[in-house]
Each structure stands twice: as C-alpha cells, then as structure tokens.
Amino acid sequence: MLHIDNPILEFKDVSVSYTPGKNAVNQVSASIERNKITAIMGPSGCGKSTLLRAVNRMHELYPDIRITGEILIDNQNILTMNPMEVRRIAGMVFQRPNPFPTMSIYENVIAGYSLNGIRLSKKEKDELVETNLKNVGLWDEVKDALLKKGTFLSGGQQQRLCIARALALKPEVLLMDEPTSALDPIATNRIEELLLELKKDYTIVIVTHNMGQAARISDYSMFMYLGQLVEYDETQVMFTNPADSRTEEYLSGQFG
C-alpha cells in the first residue's frame, strides 16, 4: 500500500473494539501526508468515524471501548500521551455543527483557550478571533455580530465557526467527521472550498460518505470496509483504477 515519507500522522496496527472480541476497526496501518487532505470513505458502519475518533482520543469518554496499536503524530505515540494534550494538537470538527449555545460567536472562537484555562489579553483574543474567522471566511459575515450567540447562524456558518474554533488552537491535524452531512449543497460547497484553502497550513483528515466530495477535494483516499482498510492510494489513482474489487464495487455505487 501507499508509502509516505515523513508523515505527520501514522496508524500502526490500530484496532478499536466496542464490545470485547469484536473489532469495529481492525488492524489498520497507514501514514498521512502533511498539508494534504486525506479522505476516509466507506459504507456506514465500516469503522471510518471510529478510526478518526481514535486519533482525537474521543473514545475515552465512553467506557468499554478498547484501542490497541499505535497512533503517532510527529513520531510521538498519542495513545500514551495525556488525552487533553492530544485533543489540542488534533482538532476535531463534528458531523453536526455544535457551537456552544451559551457562548457568543466571539467566545466560541476562543472557547479552546477559555476551556483550557488559558488567560489571554483582550488584544490576543481579538487577534485570534479575527484571524480565525477570516480563515474560515466568516469574518465579513459576522464581524458586526460577534457578541451574538453562535446558534443564530445558519447551519453552514455554524460549521465554519466550529472549524474556526478548532483552528484557533493551532492543531497539527484537523480531523473532520462528515462535516457537511448536515448541510445543504451550497453550504457544503463553501466548506469544500475552505478546506482546499486550509490545506496550505493544515493537514486535514476527513471522513465522508460522499464519494463526490472525496473526489473533489482529497489528495489521498482510504476505503474502509467492515473495519478493515481495504485500499489506500492517491485519490486520482483510486477513483480511476481501484486495485481491490470491493473498492470498485463501492465506487460504482453497488453498496452504500
């Protein structure tokens, strides 16, 4: 399978199980390249979100979930690190936009800092808010409404706010779990354009059930099926010439 020099994120024999003896993710190994977009595809229940959430150590919020193997970010095994630190270097954007309803747009952007108890000066806060809202193309839309609650925004705007919130912490990797599945086509389009711009500065791993999306924005694609990584290649190669028959079946829409 695909070899990548100097990867930012590596999976080494990663398995995740919800119930003992049954792996939702089974022995996945793969390396992710810096400043690229890597898409993880597959039918629902194939373990793609489970794999992504393992990077962010989200599984630890729920008892009974076991992870084995190694996940390295910059050659450091994050499974042995402190989860709070891991979560700061691996930002996460969720399926449904989840701005904090009790906080204003402004507070939402810097929520990572206030949650972590980091004190910032007013100037630093202002700077963070402006840069990150500009980064996600939201600044012009909301600059006069920064003190309004984030929940008043449209779904697409909310999701971009959540991306800004994750970016504000300057993560090494940005993990996105089907970030457009709850959005309409126009909002989806804007997010996709945004991701293409963001990859200049960030490494993005995106889980998507939308093949078109993977084809449009990703540099590399993984295809997962029944917890296994079936195929991992450059997106163009995989879409034009899949190596595995299961990938081919999936790409031609035979299961979904």
């Binding site: 962010n56 989200m58 919020l61 709070m84 630190e85 891991v86 979560r87 700061r88 930002g91 996460m92 969720f94 449904r96 989840n98 701005p99 904090f100 309803p101 009790t102 929520a111 990572g112 206030s114 949650l115 972590n116 108890g117 959540c162 919130r165 994750a166 912490l169």
Partner: peptide, 21 residues
C-alpha cells in the same frame, strides 16, 4: 452529547466541560 464532545475535542478536562458547557 455533541456539545460535550465539542468541548472535550478542544482539550478540556471533565471538570472544565462541566463548568463551561
């Protein structure tokens, strides 16, 4: 759950999630 996960994903401890979210 969405909100709690959102806060955890930013690196908050459980106490911080309780207090701020």
């Amino acid at each position: 759950k969405d909100l709690k996960e959102g806060a955890y994903s930013l690196g908050a401890t459980r106490m911080e999630v309780i207090r701020h979210v």
